[in-house]
């Protein structure tokens, strides 16, 4: 792949090869790399603000763009914040998706292959489909796919969505840190942004009393070591994540599950929180027979999160 193409997909090993001989010291200090450093900081800021970033890439800036990706990874590891780590990976993955939409089939397939996703005229392996599907509902449920001989038929959109998920995983997994980063880069605004978020999403504000009956009931079942089906666990984890609970605290709640296995549960929890799944709606909860003992408030809302937010709002007024 040409450098101008690789710059759009800087997480590929081939892209790293382009810049691996540059000196880190130069990158951090030399005026020649001003642009790369600016772009690197911007990548992180955009990720935090949930903005898209569509850069026009040509022969002149492609090396800077690849470098900026690694600088952004270095900033993320410096911050040591799991929210930022995930958000940055999602941001890079969405960018890659947009670039891929514009590519030829050959280029898109080459990028996918480099991430371990192979497509042929029959589609992708069902294992790839399971591994990278963003959730397990509707069209992403394997039972609703066209599966034959181990291959799932995928249209371009579905294929790229799977690639996006693989990018997210790849970006999150890249370990890259640099000493003395903060001496040359101004990371104050990023720090402030992160601190600001923590105030609004404080997990210590979790009020069990305000949980909707469905979530209370799933939690009670787990506490009593009743083996809650997958869909129930999923909904609860997505809900707890949605209200800002930390992964560690979610893990503690899931611990009494009979087949609890720290590694697997952690994997599942991270999978759900990492992909920022939203909590299923009341309709979906009902479909999966997870709507237990609905009360008067339930009749007026469509989503378990609305229930919680309403109750929280009411209880904060009382105080």
């Amino acid at each position: 792949m040409q450098p101008t193409i690789l710059a759009k997909y800087p997480f590929l090993p081939e892209a790293f090869d382009l810049v691996k001989d540059e000196s880190m010291d130069e990158i951090l200090h030399s005026p020649a790399f001003n642009r790369a450093r600016e772009l690197g900081v911007a990548r992180v800021q955009r990720a935090l603000k949930n903005e898209d970033s569509f850069l026009f890439i040509d022969e002149r800036n492609c090396f800077d763009v690849v470098l900026s990706f690694f600088i952004s990874k270095a900033i993320v590891s410096q911050m040591n914040d799991s929210f930022l780590l995930r958000r940055h990976a999602i941001f890079e993955a969405k960018n890659a998706y947009h670039y891929l939409e514009e590519e030829s089939r050959e280029t898109a397939d080459a990028v996918a292959r480099s991430l371990g996703i192979k497509r042929d005229r029959n589609g992708v392996s069902f294992v790839t489909f399971l591994k990278y599907s963003p959730n397990a509902y509707g069209q992403w449920k394997l039972a609703n796919s066209r599966l034959s001989g181990g291959m799932v038929e995928v249209d371009d959109h579905t294929f790229l969505r799977l690639v996006q998920e693989a990018v997210r995983e790849r970006v999150e997994g890249i370990k890259f840190s640099v000493d003395g980063l903060e001496k040359t880069l101004d990371l104050g605004p990023i720090r402030a942004e992160l601190a600001n978020r923590k105030v609004t999403h404080r997990a210590d504000r979790v009020e069990l009393e305000s949980f909707p009956p469905c979530m209370k009931s799933i939690m009670a079942q787990i506490e009593n070591s009743i083996n809650v089906p997958h869909q129930g666990r999923f909904s609860l984890v997505a809900f707890l994540n949605g209200i800002g609970m930390k992964e560690e605290d979610i893990m503690k709640i899931m611990a009494p599950i009979p087949d609890f296995d720290d590694r697997m549960t952690r994997y599942q929890v991270e999978h759900i929180t990492g992909k920022e799944y939203s909590t299923p709606s009341c309709d979906t909860m009902r479909t999966y027979s997870l709507c237990f003992e609905p009360d008067g408030l339930c009749a007026r809302i469509k989503h378990p999160m609305q229930y919680y937010e309403y109750r929280l709002h009411v209880s904060s007024k009382k105080v």
């Binding site: 294992v127 399971l130 397990a136 394997l142 997958h230 697997m264």
Partner: peptide
């Protein structure tokens, strides 16, 4: 494959 994927199968 993890439990989640096997359950999908």
């Amino acid at each position: 494959l993890g439990s989640r994927e096997r359950r999908e199968i």
